[in-house]
Structures are given as C-alpha cells and as structure tokens.
C-alpha cells in the first residue's frame, strides 16, 4: 500500500519543489506539506510530498535499534 521514498528538498517553489534522491533530481508537488523547507527530507508518493521526515524522531528510532542491538552484543560478550 504505497512505498514512499525519502527525498531531500533542494529548491522550493509555491506548489512544487525540486528534490534529490541520492543525486537524482525530480520535481514533486508540495501542496500537502506547505511548511516544508529547503534541506528537509520528505516522503514522496506518486509525485507528491506526503510528509516531512522529523529528524529527531528518525534519530530516536535508530537509537532504539542500536540500544537493542548493543544490549544483545554485550549479553553475547558476557
């Protein structure tokens, strides 16, 4: 049910933005994320930015994974 791709906004117009996905660029609509800023990552689905990626939460998720992984590793060392 719809994979989206995270893309970095490099240029912002009124209703659209140019985004970069690992060096390739394309134009996406930003009507659904009017507050997006250059430098933000957005989730793109069918040519539209649907959501802005929240960096704090993203970091937090990675930390959670790492915590679990580290816990296991240290257990393994024990």
């Amino acid at each position: 049910m719809c994979v989206g791709v995270p893309a970095k906004v490099v240029k912002k117009n009124e209703y659209s933005a140019i985004v970069d996905v690992m060096g390739s660029q394309t134009t996406v609509g930003i009507i659904f994320v009017p507050d997006v800023n250059i430098g933000d990552y957005v989730i793109v689905h069918a040519g539209q930015a649907m959501s802005i990626v929240d960096e704090t939460y993203a970091k937090q998720s990675v930390e959670e994974w790492r915590k679990l992984v580290d816990a296991r590793n240290s257990e393994a060392i024990k």
């Binding site: 791709v5 996905v21 690992m22 390739s24 793109v44």
Partner: peptide
C-alpha cells in the same frame, strides 16, 4: 550500483 541509479530506481520502482 551508483547512488543516482538507486535513487531513480526507488522513485520508479
């Protein structure tokens, strides 16, 4: 695979 190629593949499936 070059990053840019990955990027386009992600966008287009």
């Amino acid at each position: 695979v070059k990053g840019e190629v990955h990027g386009v593949c992600d966008l287009l499936g």
